[in-house]
Nucleic acid binder design. Structure first.
Length: 578
RNA sequence: CGGGGUGUAGCGCAGUUUGGUAGCGCGCAUCGUUCGGGACGAUGAGGUCGCAGGUUCGAAUCCUGUCACCCCGACCA
C-alpha cells in the first residue's frame, strides 16, 4: 500500500498522560486514537492491521484443533444473567441498560451465559459432545480504573472459548489441549511468557491457569521457581511449609507488654524472631447478598495476608479492613488480638504455616498483654492464606521462589458445572439419563496483546513488531521523490513484490529521508528497503528494524531478479531471527 | 470509592499569583529555497479558555457548583 494514500498520523509528541512504551508508541505511531472517553480507543488503519494479524494467529491455531468460531449477540438479555446468579454478583463493571420497552439488558463482559444458552438449545445428546465454540468479539467492562492504553481498556477485543463435555475427564483433556494451543499462539506472536496457576475470580470453577507475558510494566505479581517450571499468580501461589525453629522463651503465660502493638515490637520484647510470633489480621468479610462479618486471620508474624486466598478461604466476595470500633464491639482490643479466649461468634482462620507451631508469642485479647508459649492446636483446619514471599521454598522442588511481573494475556478455566447446572444445560447419556454438561472456558485478550507485544518489543525509537504481528513485512522507502531513477526502481519493486509480501511503500513526496526513517522506526515494520542515493551506484539497502543491520543488494538489469533476491534475503533473515 | 493532579487551537504547553487586545512550539495550507536521519524563509487558516452559575464597568484569571480526564491504592483478558 502507498503511504501517501493511507491515514497514518504519526506524531512527535504525545499526551503527557501516556506512561508505558506500548501506550506511547501506539499513539505516536498512528495505530490507535483515544475515542474521547477513558479506556475507549479507535483503531486507525495501521492499528487495525495489527489487530487483524494477531486475531488471525489466534483463529488459525484454534481452528487447527477443532474449535468452531461463532459470533454471539453483543447485547445480552439480563434474564440470562439472573438465571446464572451473576446479575447481582458481577457488580458495577457490568453495564446494564434498558431498551425502549423497558426490557433489561447487559453489555456482555464475558459470555458464559449466552454460550450455554446457545448450546442447551441445540445439543441434547452425548453423541453431539464434545463441542468447543469460540468467538473473537468486543467486550465491554465498565472498569473501575481503565489505564495504560490498550492494556486495560473498558472496551477490548477478546477471544472467548467455551467447551462442553460429557464428563470431567474429557473436559480436562480439552483443557490440556487448550493450554498447548495457547502456548503455540503466544509463541507464534514472539512473546516471552509463562503459564502460571491462578485464582478463578468472578468466572468461577476450579483449576485455572493464566498466561503471563513477562514485563516490568505487568500489573500482576508472579511467583516463579528458580529451578523448576513452577509458576503461579501471587493470588494462588503455594509454597513449601516454611522452617520453624523456635528458641526457648524466658517467660511463659500471660505477660504484660504495654505499648507493643506491632509484631516488630513484640519480637523485640520477647527477644525472638518474628517467625515465632503469631499475628492476627482482622478483616470484614462481605458475602453475596450484602451480609458481612468480622473474620480473624491468624498468620505467622513474618507473613502477610493474601487477600484473594483469604476471600476464597471464607467464601467471601470481598474483604475490607475491620475498624477498631467493629473490633471493640466484639470485645477485641486492636493491637493485642490473639487466637485465645475468643467467643464462638468470632470466626478465625489459621494459616498453614502455623501447623504444629509451639512456643509462640501471640496477643492475649486483652490490651497490654501477650501470651508466651502458645501452642497452635492440632485438631483445627488450616488454610493457605499467606502471601508467598521471595525466598520461600518451592512446593515441588524445594528451590528458592522469586517474584516477577507479568501481563495477563490469557486465562483458561476448568469450569465444571458452575453454569450448566443453574442454566440447565443438560444432555442425555447412553442410559437416557439427563446430566449437566461439564464445561471449560478459555480467554485471550486480543487487543491487550498488541500492548503486550510492544512492552516486550520496543526500543527508544518506537515499536518493533514481531514477524506475525507486524502490520507490514517490508517498507520501501523512497529517499528522494525527485530522484527519477530511485523513483523508477522503487515503483517497479513495489509493483513486483507488492502482492507477494505485505509492503508499505513510502512514496510521500513532501517528506524527506530523515522523516521517513523516523516514521519507519516508530511504526516498527520489520524491514525497510531504502531506495535512494545508492541507486546511482546500482545499490539498494535493506535495513532490519530490530537490530539496525544493513544489507546491500545489487540492482540488476532485470528488476524482477532484484525483487527475487530481495524476497530471498528477507525470508533468510526472518528464519534466522526466528 | 479514598488520596493527589490536570482541563486554554488537531497535539504539546505558557498565561491564572496581582482581572483589562488569548500567546508559543509542533502540525496544517500556499509560495520559494532545500533533499540520506524529524530542513529553512515568507504568508496564512485555526480557540464559546471543560461546562453552568455568580462577583465586576470588564473574568482564561476571583467565588460556587458540576463534568471529564490522568496518577497512586481495592478488580480483570
Amino acid at each position: 500500500m502507498r503511504f501517501s494514500k493511507l491515514l497514518i498520523p504519526t506524531v512527535k509528541e504525545v499526551p503527557s498522560d501516556a506512561q508505558l512504551p506500548s501506550h506511547i508508541y501506539l499513539l505516536r505511531g498512528g495505530f490507535i486514537q483515544n475515542a474521547g472517553g477513558s479506556g475507549l480507543y479507535n483503531f486507525l488503519p495501521l492499528g487495525k492491521r495489527v489487530l487483524d494479524k494477531v486475531r488471525r494467529v489466534v483463529k488459525e491455531e484454534l481452528d487447527r484443533v477443532g474449535c468452531q468460531e461463532v459470533s454471539l449477540a453483543f447485547v445480552t438479555p439480563a434474564s440470562l444473567w439472573q438465571e446464572s446468579g451473576r446479575y447481582e454478583k458481577y457488580g458495577k463493571e457490568l453495564l446494564r441498560f434498558k431498551d425502549r420497552k423497558e426490557n433489561e439488558f447487559v453489555l456482555g463482559p464475558t459470555h458464559e451465559e449466552m454460550m450455554v444458552n446457545l448450546v442447551r438449545q441445540s445439543v441434547k445428546s452425548y453423541k453431539q459432545l464434545p463441542q468447543h465454540l469460540y468467538q473473537i468479539n468486543w467486550k465491554f467492562r465498565d472498569e473501575v480504573r481503565p489505564r495504560y492504553g490498550l492494556m486495560r481498556g473498558r472496551e477490548f477485543l477478546m477471544q472467548d472459548g467455551y467447551s462442553f463435555h460429557v464428563d470431567e475427564t474429557d473436559m480436562k483433556r480439552e483443557f490440556a489441549l487448550m493450554e498447548e494451543t495457547y502456548k503455540r499462539i503466544f509463541r507464534r506472536l514472539g512473546l516471552d511468557f509463562r503459564v502460571v496457576e491462578a485464582d478463578s475470580g468472578a468466572i468461577g470453577g476450579s483449576g485455572s491457569k493464566e498466561f503471563m507475558v513477562l514485563a516490568e510494566s505487568g500489573e500482576d505479581t508472579l511467583v516463579v521457581c528458580k529451578s523448576c517450571d513452577y509458576g503461579a499468580n501471587i493470588e494462588a501461589a503455594k509454597r513449601a511449609a516454611p522452617a520453624y525453629t523456635p528458641k526457648p522463651l524466658s517467660q511463659e503465660g500471660k505477660v504484660a507488654t504495654p505499648g507493643t502493638t506491632s509484631i516488630e515490637a513484640v519480637a523485640r520484647f520477647f527477644d525472638v524472631d518474628a517467625t515465632q510470633t503469631l499475628k492476627i489480621v482482622a478483616k470484614e468479610a462481605h458475602f453475596e447478598g450484602g451480609k458481612s462479618e468480622i473474620v480473624l486471620f491468624a498468620l505467622r508474624g513474618d507473613d502477610a495476608l493474601q487477600e484473594v486466598k483469604a476471600c476464597n478461604a471464607v467464601g467471601a466476595d470481598d474483604l475490607s479492613d475491620a475498624s477498631e470500633a467493629q473490633l471493640e464491639a466484639l470485645g477485641l482490643p486492636a493491637g493485642y488480638l490473639g487466637p485465645v479466649g475468643l467467643s464462638d461468634e468470632v470466626k478465625i482462620c489459621f494459616d498453614e504455616a502455623l501447623r504444629g507451631a509451639t512456643a509462640m508469642v501471640c496477643g492475649a485479647n486483652e490490651a497490654g498483654y501477650h501470651i508466651a508459649g502458645y501452642a497452635v492446636p492440632e485438631d483445627i483446619t488450616f488454610v493457605d492464606i499467606a502471601e508467598v514471599r521471595e525466598g520461600d521454598r518451592c512446593v515441588h522442588c524445594g528451590a528458592e521462589l522469586t517474584h516477577t511481573k507479568g501481563i495477563e494475556v490469557g486465562h483458561i478455566f476448568q469450569l465444571g458445572t458452575r453454569y450448566s447446572e443453574p442454566l440447565k444445560c443438560e444432555f442425555l447419556d447412553e442410559n437416557g439419563k439427563a446430566k449437566p454438561m461439564v464445561m471449560g472456558t478459555y480467554g485471550i485478550g486480543v487487543s491487550r496483546l498488541l500492548a503486550a507485544i510492544i512492552e516486550q518489543h520496543h526500543d527508544d525509537k518506537g515499536c518493533i513488531w514481531t514477524k506475525e504481528s507486524a502490520p507490514f513485512t517490508l517498507e520501501i522507502i523512497l529517499g528522494d521523490a525527485k530522484n527519477e531513477r530511485a523513483k523508477e526502481v522503487a515503483e517497479s519493486l513495489y509493483e513486483v513484490i507488492g502482492d507477494r509480501i505485505e509492503v508499505l511503500y513510502d512514496d510521500r513526496a513532501k517528506e524527506r529521508f530523515g522523516a521517513k526513517m523516523k516514521d519507519f522506526e516508530l511504526m516498527g515494520i520489520p524491514f525497510a528497503l531504502i531506495v535512494g542515493k545508492g541507486v546511482n551506484d546500482g545499490k539498494v539497502e535493506l535495513v532490519e528494524r530490530a537490530n539496525g543491520e544493513r544489507h546491500y543488494l545489487e540492482i540488476g538489469d532485470d528488476l524482477a531478479e532484484t525483487a527475487e533476491a530481495l524476497l530471498a534475503t528477507i525470508a533468510d533473515l526472518q528464519s534466522k531471527r526466528g
